[in-house]
Design a protein around this nucleic acid. Sequence first.
DNA 1: GTTGAGCGTT
Length: 169
Amino acid sequence: TSHSQSRHMGNRAIPDPNCCLGVFGLSLYTTERVLREVFSKYGPIDNVSIIYDQQSRRSRGFAFVYFENVDDAKKAKECTNGMELDGRKIRVDFSITKRPHSPTPGIYMGRPTYGSSRRRYYYDRGYDRGYDDREDRDHIYRRRSPSPYYSRGGYRSRSRSRSYSPRRY
DNA sequence: GTTGAGCGTT
């Protein structure tokens, strides 16, 4: 098929070989540096990125390694899958997704206010996410701007000047 | 060094 397998099979599909490797089961203490050191033995690396939790700032335990050539990626995958790194057996596979999701576009995701009555069913992110993402359309109708009053007057200095607490002199 | 499958929204 001309389409990627994973497009029709979701995340559990067998990923086709590509330049991007997903590395899973990482120790939380493994750095991108180490990953680059390990993987660059199989060919030139474009980039390495560990995925961090946004709140805790900790590693989520997986990363993506971008090779310049697929063949190197293949070799690397074979050689590094199951290898131990910082005390953890890592799993490495060809990545399903190719890139981080773009931040939610602020504009124009759904409901045209005017113009074409027929809109494309898929939102074009400008890259291949690698699998069917129609469910993401849910976000389309949830893009209401937050109420302007929500953060109005939220500065403490203000409410402090009108403090309820008694003066202490 | 919190006990873990996981495909990412700097």
